[in-house]
């Protein structure tokens, strides 16, 4: 398969970037998208050129590192997968493929296709956890009975891998789906209810401070999320936040 790649190249965080054309040949449909980029990088090394920098780690759709905007969509045209799970059979011989970094003011480009997503870490650190006294009196979480439906909903919210596709897909670069998934996974469980008021206030405050946009309810985030995180979580976070504001 022969492809014409248009890839965002940017020397560093402060440099001005631009799209650069890279024709690539010999791509097999069974290759993953990242393997295709590996092939291109090998060719660039042979030519003595600077390789294209992109994030990747597990290559199994678990770590959420591979953040690429492919032909205008986060993680490419296929749904419910991360970039590393995208196969080249999704493209046709002769296709032109645009590859850009996830774009958001809160996700500044570090180099080429790598963006700084530590804004998500700071939201998580704001209160994306349950405080547990580990002084020896810790009660086993499994001793607390939880409705199956609630446990499933919480689990589904917890499958968010924090890849940032929701931000990348949103026309406003909003992080509401990510933050709401983190709020929901605890808000649905009795262990998380104890700090629910403080948690939602702290996480939303941090989300706003990072400079993400507002949610316009377009639903793009839900469609592009590789883990299928539902918009229901955003509605839940809205409820949680408004209730917390009333409580003060």
């Amino acid at each position: 398969m022969k492809l014409n790649l248009k890839i965002w190249r940017q020397e560093n965080a402060t440099a001005k970037g631009k799209m650069v054309d890279y024709p690539v040949d010999g791509i097999d449909g069974d290759m993953s998208f990242l393997e295709m980029l590996d092939i291109l990088n090998e060719q660039l090394v042979e030519k003595g050129e600077d390789t294209i920098q992109f994030d990747h780690d597990c290559r199994e759709g678990i770590c959420g590192s591979c953040s690429l905007q492919i032909n205008g969509e986060p993680h490419g045209p296929d749904k419910l997968i991360a970039t590393c799970q995208l196969h080249m059979r999704s493209f046709k011989d002769g296709d032109t493929i645009y590859i850009e970094p996830f774009r958001a003011k809160a996700f500044p480009v570090i180099k080429d296709l790598i963006v700084d997503r530590t804004a998500f870490d700071r939201i998580q650190q704001a209160w994306g956890y349950v405080s547990v006294n580990t002084s020896g009196n810790t009660v086993d979480a499994n001793t607390i009975p939880i409705e199956k439906e609630k446990a499933d909903e919480s689990f589904n919210a917890a499958t968010c891998i924090g890849c940032g596709a929701c931000v990348a897909a949103c026309k406003n670069a909003s992080a509401m789906l990510f933050t709401s998934a983190k709020v929901s996974q605890y808000a649905l469980l009795p262990q998380g209810r104890v700090e629910a008021t403080e948690r939602v206030q702290a996480m939303v405050r941090q989300m706003d401070e990072e400079g993400f946009g507002n949610c316009s309810n377009t639903g793009a985030c839900e469609i592009e999320c590789p883990k299928g995180i539902s918009l229901e979580n955003i509605a839940r976070m809205n409820r949680e936040y408004l209730a917390a504001s009333v409580k003060g």
Partner: peptide
């Protein structure tokens, strides 16, 4: 605020693939 949240626009943005024109 929304416009400021993405200071550099995408060269290619496939909004129609995941959301309606009216919502955007």
């Amino acid at each position: 605020k929304n416009r400021g949240a993405r200071d550099i626009k995408y060269v290619k943005f496939a909004g129609n693939e995941n959301s309606s024109w009216v919502s955007r």
